[in-house]
Design a protein around this nucleic acid. Structure first.
Lengths: 246, 246
DNA sequence: AAGTGGTCTAGACCACGCG
DNA sequence: GCGTGGTCTAGACCACTTG
């Protein structure tokens, strides 16, 4: 019935390119090795630089490549598994060396967070900024929203912003009973400030982990953690770590 | 001390564009509404179409927009929360209406999966293909790898491939004792076949959920589930659902 | 057939890291 | 200063959906 063409195959060039480069990566390059520059690669494959970049974009998204302006494109190491399971950190700041408190401010929560916290829109919250570091590399930036009503022990006049205050808020939080927590993961793009902390460009893809900490029948705090999607694999293990390299 | 320029602000055009459009989306458009076409928008903002597209790309990545070739760009509904918590489905196929078995084949597992299953590279496994549907829309495509040794009751000569066999494998699996499971989430790009099932273009961003089912001191099965990143928010709730709309 | 988003080109200039 | 990746342009054609 009609033409017997096998496949019709109008496969996009960048898709084919991606496959070719991906295979070359497996067989001919070592982790950390630097690739020829984009103009060189484009010429070698006989395509425009934009097309070549489309292929590299995907490979970077998949965590196979790492690109740094002014430096070059290198072969990325396998993604690191970062534990995000609830059992690991009952309260933020309980036995943690992975997170380091950076700053703390008193402000109003954005509408979306206010809804999660079930508070009025103008209500003041402590906003703790933390950074998660693994192997000396930042992997996540977090904003922890704590309504003033959750930590009444904390005097607001204790106006020293900064790390000291951040730790004080966490300390107060730890004294509450944790009833449970909700968690959600979705794809996002890095805000400018997160991008800076994570050593990425604004808009780079990130995994956003939203956690709601429940205590005393209500939501005591909400954490919005932004993980680098290129380098991280989020693990929720009951048991050991599962490695998934190619 | 040098120039007192405030900000220096070489903020990329597409970034600024994205912000402007995002705000317009909040205030001037309803969910499902169709936007002006790309050429029109580009002209209106006085930029090249490629630049406009860079902004739309990001908004689509964030789940704010939905683009369909030949149709147009529409305002996306808020992401749906899909439950991926371990408590929900002890074994794949236990009390499930969310997943529908599509197919089953007997083949060898790819190296990465073989490593997770802790089996030899050439060893034969059952590969069950399933589709997760929510509100009539496909949200995830799964490949479930079950080593023949995990379900010895299943006769290989029972060679009917297809849904019937898929259900037989799941039935056999349910009779094992589940000791626990590992789970990991990472960013990926859709393979051609997954993309087709999910009604997306190849390469579109997806959230890959890898689950390892443990039984009898070993790994009885491995599931690789590919979720649409644009429309899905993966939830791991201890309790209710957490909504995070703008 | 017309209109949409998707792909591709061949250029240009800019921001950044490094020597 | 030089080489890198990042941004941007102004076109062209293709694949797809719909009336």
């Amino acid at each position: 019935m009609g033409t017997t063409q096998l496949e019709a195959a109008p496969e996009p060039k960048y898709w084919h390119l991606k496959t070719v480069i991906s295979e070359a990566l497996d067989s001919e390059f070592a982790v950390g090795e630097i690739l020829p520059n984009e103009r060189e690669l484009a010429a070698r494959f006989g395509v425009a630089r934009a097309t070549l970049r489309q292929a590299l974009d995907q490979l970077e998204l998949e965590g196979r490549l790492q690109r740094r302006r002014g430096v070059g494109t290198t072969v990325a190491p396998p993604r690191v598994g970062v534990d995000v399971s609830t059992t690991q950190h009952a309260w933020p700041g309980a036995g943690e060396d992975t997170w380091q408190s950076v700053d703390c401010a008193a402000d109003t929560a954005p509408p979306a967070v206010a809804r999660l916290l079930d508070i009025q829109l103008g209500e003041r919250v402590h906003i703790v900024r933390r950074l998660r570091v693994t192997d000396g590399r930042p992997v996540a930036a977090e904003l922890l929203y704590v309504p003033a009503s959750s930590v009444p022990g904390l005097v607001d006049a204790d106006a020293t912003d900064g790390p000291t205050r951040a730790r004080a808020v966490l300390r107060a939080l730890r004294q509450l009973d944790l009833d449970g927590q909700d968690r959600a993961v979705e794809l996002g793009s890095a805000r400018a400030d997160d991008a800076r902390e994570l050593d990425r460009l604004p808009g780079s893809p990130v995994l956003v982990v939203t956690t709601r900490y429940l205590s005393g029948g209500g939501t005591a705090a909400v954490s919005v953690a932004t993980y680098r999607a290129d380098t991280c694999r989020l693990t929720f293990g009951d048991s050991g770590d599962l490695a998934m390299a190619s």
